[in-house]
């Protein structure tokens, strides 16, 4: 899906790191040798995005470029290349549903349709209240717990239509749903419970 930068009327005029984030930014820059500060471009863009409602306005890219003394176009290249930088406003809960083969085989179509029907929007859209944006993404590397979706920084795994809706409802109410597998299993252990090394669990 082609990412389209926010139009000019949605772009803020300026961007500045908060004092706190400025300290973090300086720590990132300090990781690299002098005159190699441009290497800090990705963590700084991420920091800017986190500070700015999970999307990266042009002013923020310009601010990062100035801070790292690099040409602006080089920052634009990085920010547009990596899909995890959002170039236009997104909902408060940024839902990324994996539909790559393992998740698809395990029922990601159900997750997608559950999201669509629950939120009443199509893939790529944002709800009218600005709370949710749903997009389809390629593999997020949690195939062992397929199907899964990522909402902001958290993975919700082993989803079904029902548990997808439950997660969304909890978020809509402002609650914090349990992160990780929604099926009750612990992390990535076998779906039917542990099969080896059971003696270490104390049940014999």
């Amino acid at each position: 899906m082609k990412r389209v930068p926010a139009p000019a009327d949605q772009q803020p005029d300026s961007f500045a790191f908060t004092a706190e984030n400025l300290e973090v930014a300086k720590r990132h820059i300090a990781k690299y040798p002098p005159r190699r500060q441009a290497s800090a471009v990705m963590p700084l863009l991420d920091l800017a995005q986190r500070q700015h409602e999970n999307w990266l306005p042009r002013a923020a890219m310009d601010a990062v470029a100035e801070m790292l003394e690099m040409p602006r176009i080089r920052v634009y290249e990085v920010a547009t290349f990596y899909t995890m930088y959002n170039l236009a406003p997104v909902g408060q809960h940024f839902v990324q549903i994996c539909t790559t083969t393992p998740c698809w085989l395990r029922g990601s179509d159900d997750v997608v349709s559950a999201c669509k029907s629950k939120l009443g929007i199509e893939m790529g859209d944002t709800t009218a209240d600005g709370k949710f944006t749903v997009i389809e993404v390629e593999c997020l590397g949690a195939c062992v717990n397929a199907p899964m979706m990522q909402i902001n920084d958290d993975y919700y795994e082993d989803l079904t239509a029902a548990s997808t809706i439950a997660v969304l409802e909890a978020l809509a109410k402002g609650e914090t749903p349990k992160v990780g597998p929604q099926s009750g299993r612990h992390t990535t252990e076998p779906a039917g419970g542990p099969t080896t090394l059971r003696e270490f669990m104390g049940d014999g």
Partner: peptide, 18 residues
């Protein structure tokens, strides 16, 4: 340094972005 290749893959575009 005003020209660059933005976006990626088939969507790569040459331009100033701004």
């Amino acid at each position: 340094e005003e020209l660059g290749a933005t976006f990626r893959g088939e969507e790569t575009e040459i331009g100033t972005y701004i």
